[in-house]
Design a protein around this nucleic acid. Structure first.
Lengths: 232, 232
DNA sequence: GTCCGTCAAGAGCAGTGCTCTCTTTTCTTT
DNA sequence: AAAGAAAAGAGAGCACTGCTCTTGACGGAC
């Protein structure tokens, strides 16, 4: 019967989840390079080689943690976005910004795993892509909604985009249908600006320079909203 | 005599430099976590314990590499800036942007060491600070020059900054004397935008999205110039 | 009841950062 | 120039890592 097979598979799934949980806790303390399969096994009362029944290599465990991380961040962003009325585009943008920052501050090592330097010798498999774009999709929807509602009034037009940009713009336009090049590039600038800011803050680049990080962040993201063309 | 002491100190300095050189080459290939003291020693025909006469720990070697990296990047930025007439503020900004990106693309692992996730368990000592701000000082001079020349015309005023921002703004104003809060926050936004963009590109966040990276980067940095208020 | 696939356990390999001791080299002082 | 002090190299060793291989036990399928 399949229920018996399911019995085994169930305990397997349970153990797999427990391994990632323990690994995530270790990740939070030691960071990615400090994540040790043997330590995970030790904490679970297993012998180290048993872990390899569940994850063929350390990199595979990392991949699982990365996918989980992207999903957790994406979910936080989705929740923050959904908590506001759809027509409050500026509020949604700011909520997304703070969701990203709060999530990153609460789990700096996990954020570093997603948006910091890639682990050398490791390259993310294609499975991570769907999870990785969840937050970006939310962002695209906000800009898209604002554009459709006519709420997008950039202060001054960008300099003209080079012709070679049109292909990339078309790819991004799938998320923001009907957006002119000007809106597209502003959207990308704000998005990279958000993560650039969070990374600077988390990775210590603001040390000795910006101390009231929360205030500066909020202000900067409001400015970004204005740059996109959202009402402020 | 002091020349004899210098003889020993000279060979010591030479060896120290050779160690960092070999380490930098390894860093370029394997990345920070793959940097191995034993491998460095092997390549130099030394025994591993001898390295510890020059660097008390792996972290100290990393610190030396970080300082060297900041200096190399700072020098590249300074050169790019100095190659243009002082009153060409927009050109200088674009030159700095491209210098940063070119430097990062040529040495991705070194860039990751400076601006990526910090090595866990390692915290940069205060010695790195002077080297770390060389590029920022160049940038501050450009904005400062533009401001003094009256060439800074932001398209629309930012939303008002919160009162708690004034302290941080004052700290940054030391680099850009006389700048109003509005200019300060725009300057920080552009700076984080530059590094956020380069990090996104280098760390794989633009995969499947932006393919003609050079064109998109140049365009985005021109937009940033306009956002700062520089003529485009 | 046998049989086969799954799993835990343990030993072992090659590698790591780092510390200790011992010897050799180099510089300084008498 | 000889003796003493300081610095540098060599090598063994500790505790740790990821990963592989073999061995033995358990459990569901025919």
């Amino acid at each position: 019967m399949s229920s018996s097979r399911t019995a085994r598979e169930r305990v397997r799934a349970e153990l797999t989840r427990e391994i990632t949980d323990v690994a995530r806790r270790q990740l939070a303390v030691e960071g990615a390079t400090g994540l040790s399969l043997r330590a995970v096994a030790r904490e679970m009362g297993m012998v180290s080689s048993a872990i390899y029944r569940y994850f063929p290599s350390r990199d595979d465990l990392l991949t699982a943690l990365i996918i989980d991380g992207y999903n957790a961040l994406g979910e936080a962003v989705e929740r923050a976005d959904a908590a506001l009325p759809r027509e409050d585009h500026t509020g949604r943008w700011l909520a997304v910004c703070h969701a990203v920052r709060d999530w990153a501050l609460a789990r700096p090592h996990e954020y570093a795993l997603l948006y910091g330097s890639p682990v050398p010798g490791y390259q993310a498999p294609q499975d991570t892509v769907p999870a990785a774009v969840r937050d970006t999709l939310v962002y695209g929807r906000i800009v898209s909604d604002a554009l459709r509602a006519g709420a997008l009034n950039p202060p001054a037009p960008c300099p003209p985009a080079p012709p070679s940009f049109s292909e990339d713009a078309a790819r991004i336009r799938e998320m923001i249908p009907g957006a002119p090049d000007d809106v597209i590039v502003r959207a990308v600038i704000a998005w990279t600006g958000l993560f650039g800011w969070v990374s600077f803050e988390l990775f210590g680049q603001f040390n000795n320079a910006i101390l009231d990080r929360a205030a500066a962040f909020d202000h900067a993201m409001r400015c970004h909203a204005q740059i996109i063309g959202l009402p402020v």
